[in-house]
Amino acid sequence: MRIKFPLGRRDGPTDAWTKCPGCESQIFNKQLERNLRVCPTCGHHFRMSVGERIDLLVDRDSFEERDAGLTSGDPLGFHDQQAYADRLEASHIKTGLREAAVWGTARIEEHPVAIGLFDFRFMGGSMGSVVGEKVARCFEAAIGERIPAIIVSASGGARMQEGTLSLLQLAKTTAPLARMDVAGVPFISVLTDPTTGGVLASFASLGDVIVAEPGALIGFAGARVASGTVGEELPEGFQRSEFLLEHGFVDLVVPRAELRRTLGRLLRALPVAAAAGGAWPPTEERAWGPIGVLSDFAERLGGAVSETIGIDVQAEEENGGGPTPPASREAARPPRGGKAP
């Protein structure tokens, strides 16, 4: 999707410039937005809000938010220099979000997906009970509706203000992934700047495919944690996307302008298990026979014609032609909400 920005932009400060941390050049804010918040000079990828991410990645008008009404409690009565509740409120005012992540269903290049997105400006994108709950529900919906899951991460890690309840979100968000393996539902993890700590040490590192934006900070220990705990500064240029690619922990480093198309390509190539099953070479759907050629041709002409020739991939999927998880596992839908301590 090309996002068009017609000339008549909404009112706002017209004199706002942003200094690029990559090359120090001054960028006109409108130009930055037009360029998907990527520096036109050096290609530095600025952080994006959840809203901008949705506009960037999913088909127009396809995003339907779910579980919008989930909000955090304050289970520890946490207070540092500021009360946790006040920090939550400040983040809400700053971003318009109720929590650091949203999730919902959407389509990407026509493929239905369950997608979760983080916003780093909401308490550093940190994962507490609610963020963990949203991620887990996103995965469970992907299993239940047999659609791929995508999480776009941007997080400092587990939320300290909820103590070990946050730590346990690592397990809460990871447990559904084992079920997705059994169910044959793919998970694509998208890592953006920054993805560190507990989010990286759980679901974000476990994508069937892991995609990262260029130059994103991705690492287990944040520099401040590392220098505080170990007493040594991490070297410059360490923990960047390209470094992880080189060391085998990321599949693809994709510039922002290519991200949507890349996801579309992956979704085509990595369908949910039932659709991919069957004999090889495929004999029915899109085969090398005359019908296959015809339907391919018809698709290229107009799209939906293939359905009239009797090829209905969706129906086959639902009839469960491929491997299905054991009934008992499917039945193991957990209780919603949280047990209050």
């Binding site: 996002i3 068009k4 920005f5 017609p6 000339l7 008549g8 932009r9 909404r10 942003t18 918040r37 600025f46 952080r47 994006m48 809000s49 959840v50 809203g51 901008e52 949705i54 506009d55 127009r60 995003f63 920090r87 700053k94 971003t95 318009g96 979000l97 650091a100 949203v102 916003d119 400006r121 308490m123 550093g124 994108g125 940190s126 994962m127 507490g128 997080s155 400092g156 890690g157 587990a158 939320r159 300290m160 203000q161 946050s166 560190t196 700590g197 507990g198 989010v199 944040g222 401040r224 944690v225």
Partner: peptide, 25 residues
């Protein structure tokens, strides 16, 4: 000059590029 289509970035816009990391571990 015609108004753009409504976009999600208006619901949840960016801005205030503070780099605070007041929660993550």
């Amino acid at each position: 000059g015609a108004p753009r289509r409504p976009r999600w970035s208006e619901v949840w816009p960016s801005g205030d590029e503070s780099t605070d990391n007041e929660g993550g571990a």
